[in-house]
Amino acid sequence: MKLLTLNFLTCAIKTCKTSPSSFPLHPQDSELEIVEADINVLFLRNMLPRLMWNELRLIVNELGLPSLPETAPDASSLLETKLQVPEGDTTGLNIEKIEVPSQVAKDLHRVLLETCIREGKLVCGNCGHEYKVMEGVANFLLPGHLV
């Protein structure tokens, strides 16, 4: 499961959801993997304002990954301009300006969309309930005594 999705998941227990400590869920005994995917700056830009940044930073630290900056990057920092010779142009006289994903965008993409939890569990900070992750699929079905 991609780390982005953890930013949208809380404890499934109704009475627990009212407590701020039910979010984010804390990954434990995680087996991580990198699954490469094409970068999509438009999607990253749309997700930025919807992310709970502090909680994302917390998870990243708990997983022992390199720390994220204290504040969320600005949407404008996701693209940078690059000068290049137009494709197929051998005259050496022309140059064009193109927009490409910045390092900030690449890093964000790496963390949110390429870093995945393959096996492990997610633990609620409020009630301590554990949700299993198997083959990248988390199970949020509540056992009989909690519904």
């Binding site: 499961m1 991609k2 982005l4 999705t5 930013n7 949208f8 998941l9 809380t10 404890c11 499934a12 227990i13 109704k14 959801k17 979010f23 869920l25 995917a37 094409d38 999509n40 709970m52 995945c116 949700y131 990248g136 699929v137 988390a138 199970n139 949020f140 079905l141 509540l142 519904v147």
Partner: peptide, 20 residues
């Protein structure tokens, strides 16, 4: 289309784990 699949999880909408 796998690059745009965020994955699946097991849950019941009446006890959703999604942030609301």
């Amino acid at each position: 289309l796998e690059g745009r699949y965020l994955g699946g999880f097991v849950s019941d909408l009446t006890n959703t784990p999604l942030r609301i």
